[in-house]
Simulated assay, not measured.
Amino acid sequence: MSIQSKNENGSFGSFAEYWADGDWAPHVKMLHTGKRNTHALALLEQPAGAFPDPAMPEFHIQLVQRGNANLRMSFEGAEVRTQLNAGALFMAPANTKVDYEVDGPQKFVSLAINKALADRFRDQADIDLPKDFGQLHAQKFHDPIVEALMLRMLDQALLEHPTSDLFLDQATNTILTTLLCRSEIIPVIEEAPIVLSDDDLAKVSEMIEEQLDESFSVADLARLTSLSDWHFGRAFKNSTGLSPHQYVMRRRIARAKEMLGSSKMSIAQIAYACGFASQSHLNDVFKKKVGTTPRIYRMERRN
Rank of each mutant, 00 (worst) to 15 (best):
E45Q: 15
I189F: 06
D213R: 11
H27G: 05
F276H: 03
I145T: 05
S262T: 11
K203V: 09
Q211D: 13
L168G: 02
R182V: 09
G233F: 00
A86W: 11
M259E: 13
N283F: 14
S263G: 02
R298V: 01
E210R: 14
Q62V: 09
T225S: 06
C181Q: 08
S74M: 15
T172W: 04
A268I: 04
I208H: 02
V109D: 01
P47V: 11
P57F: 02
F141W: 14
H231F: 13
I267T: 14
I267F: 07
T177E: 10
K289W: 08
E258K: 15
A157S: 04
N238C: 05
E209K: 15
L89V: 09
F232L: 12
C274H: 09
R302Y: 04
P52I: 08
H281Q: 07
D53A: 13
S215R: 14
C181E: 13
S226H: 09
K264R: 14
A254N: 04
L159A: 04
A94N: 04
Q106Y: 04
I253V: 10
A25Q: 10
G10C: 07
R66V: 10
S226W: 02
H60R: 00
I113C: 00
A78M: 11
R255I: 10
E76Y: 07
S14L: 02
G77M: 05
L89D: 04
H27E: 04
R72H: 05
S110A: 15
V80Q: 13
S217F: 12
S197M: 05
V109S: 06
F286I: 05
P244N: 08
T96G: 08
D155C: 02
Q46P: 01
L227G: 07
V102T: 15
I189D: 06
R182S: 14
A256H: 03
D165R: 00
E79M: 06
F90C: 11
D213N: 12
G10Q: 08
L63H: 08
D128H: 15
L176V: 03
A171P: 00
T33N: 00
K115V: 09
L166C: 03
L212P: 03
A40H: 01
A25H: 09
G261A: 15
F133V: 02
S266V: 07
Q139L: 09
F15K: 00
N303G: 13
N9H: 06
A222K: 14
M299D: 08
Y18Q: 07
K115A: 09
A273D: 14
M150I: 08
D155W: 02
E206F: 09
Q124H: 07
E191C: 05
G10L: 08
I194D: 12
G13H: 13
P52D: 06
E214W: 07
L31E: 01
R234N: 01
K115R: 13
R301E: 13
L180H: 00
D143W: 06
A50H: 05
K203H: 06
I186W: 00
L136M: 03
R301W: 10
Y272K: 10
Q4A: 11
G291Q: 03
S262H: 11
L158H: 08
G87S: 12
H32E: 03
D155L: 10
D119I: 10
K257S: 06
M207N: 12
V98P: 02
M207G: 07
V28E: 06
D53E: 11
A116H: 10
S5G: 11
V80C: 15
C274L: 12
L282I: 08
R234H: 01
M249S: 14
G10S: 06
R255C: 04
E258W: 12
